[in-house]
Write a protein that binds this DNA or RNA. Structure first.
Lengths: 202, 202
DNA sequence: ACCTGAACACCGTTCAAGT
DNA sequence: ACCTGAACACCGTTCAAGT
């Protein structure tokens, strides 16, 4: 008969994969990806140092899985931020930007891991797809803006490059947290305003 | 009597610090910062694995020194790009952006190292200063733009946040190299145009 | 001053073996 | 199926010692 997860450990951990991912994320945020050791994780979780092998082919595979969960969470957040049916396009854009910034501020190390995905040569297909999905919400927003006459006509995916660059950079800056004592969250609307102005028909 | 650096190795390497930094940059760009090993570097340079200690307190110190040289080089490139006395402000801005993008494309791993400086808690003062200098060329350009009426009035350092975000993001995207088969260098002017439009008085 | 060799405490990964 | 222990080939860092 199967026992609850809260039991004192049986021979089979029962939830090792999840436990490892959870422990990994904690030390990732606390001490960075380079300080993360599979052996240490195993110790924390109370399992031999060769056990992770069953669930993750190697250390990179564990980091990939972690990034994957990050993309899932980001996706949910972005979907929620975009779903809100506000009339004002500028507000919609701001909500979208705010969602990115919030996520990155909440999980800075995970965010870096997610960004690295694009640059890593041998990343698994599944992960690359998740990455593409997360970083390609721009064109849809641009089309929206064009539909309501707030964005100049032109190839949406090309125009969204401007939007994407601005957002990525904004997040990159925001990871520093503050600017002259003002929290980045406060600055987002102003920056988004300028981004939008640059894309506006004149 | 002192001998030339090209001599077959004497007991004292004579140029160990430089040799280590050079070897480090090669393997950094080839295989990333996490694959960089002091012992391997020592082997390549032909010295015992404890020798680097004389020149770098630890591995991080070597990476810091590497980042420092990066900032020096970037600084020279930015200075050159800004010095060109072109009349058109948009062109000046584009040259500036182009310089960033070129540097990051040429030394992607070094660029990441340089960016990390800001987020690393115990970075040495000297390095933080170099980082600040490299990432704070914006306000001066904004003031320039305001002087010729191309940029809205307002706190230059605050306005340059928009510029800085766009540039950082642009670089981040450009590290991917291509967009629909078009090199990023070709796309920079268009993106800068939109950035500038967003900052323009109306 | 600058470099070396041995030693220590860690890694990731592999593999035969246990339950 | 899932986990373990011993073994291998690496690390970074320290320290007494050599030239």
């Amino acid at each position: 008969m199967p026992r609850l997860k809260t039991d004192s450990r049986p021979y089979h951990h029962g939830n090792l994969r999840q436990a490892l991912l959870q422990a990994a994320e904690m030390t990732l945020e606390a001490r960075g990806a380079s300080d993360l050791s599979l052996r240490e994780l195993s110790r924390e979780v109370g399992v031999s140092h060769t056990s992770p092998r069953r669930h993750f082919a190697d250390k990179q595979a564990l980091l990939d899985a972690l990034a994957q969960t990050g993309f899932q969470r980001l996706d949910a957040i972005l979907a929620k931020a975009t779903k809100k049916r506000v009339r004002n396009f500028a507000t919609r854009l701001t909500n979208f930007a705010q969602a990115y910034v919030e996520f990155a501020l909440k999980h800075p190390a995970l965010w870096v891991l997610m960004l690295d995905t694009k640059h890593r040569p041998g990343a698994p297909r599944e992960l690359l797809e998740a990455s593409d999905a997360a970083f390609s919400k721009g064109p849809a927003l641009i089309k929206e803006g064009q539909a309501v006459g707030e964005v100049v006509p032109g190839d949406p995916s090309r125009l969204s490059l401007t939007l994407g660059a601005a957002l990525l950079g904004l997040v990159s800056i925001s990871t520093d947290g503050k600017f002259k004592g003002v929290s980045i969250e406060t600055l987002v609307p102003g920056i988004v305003k300028h981004i939008l102005l640059g894309l506006r028909p004149r």
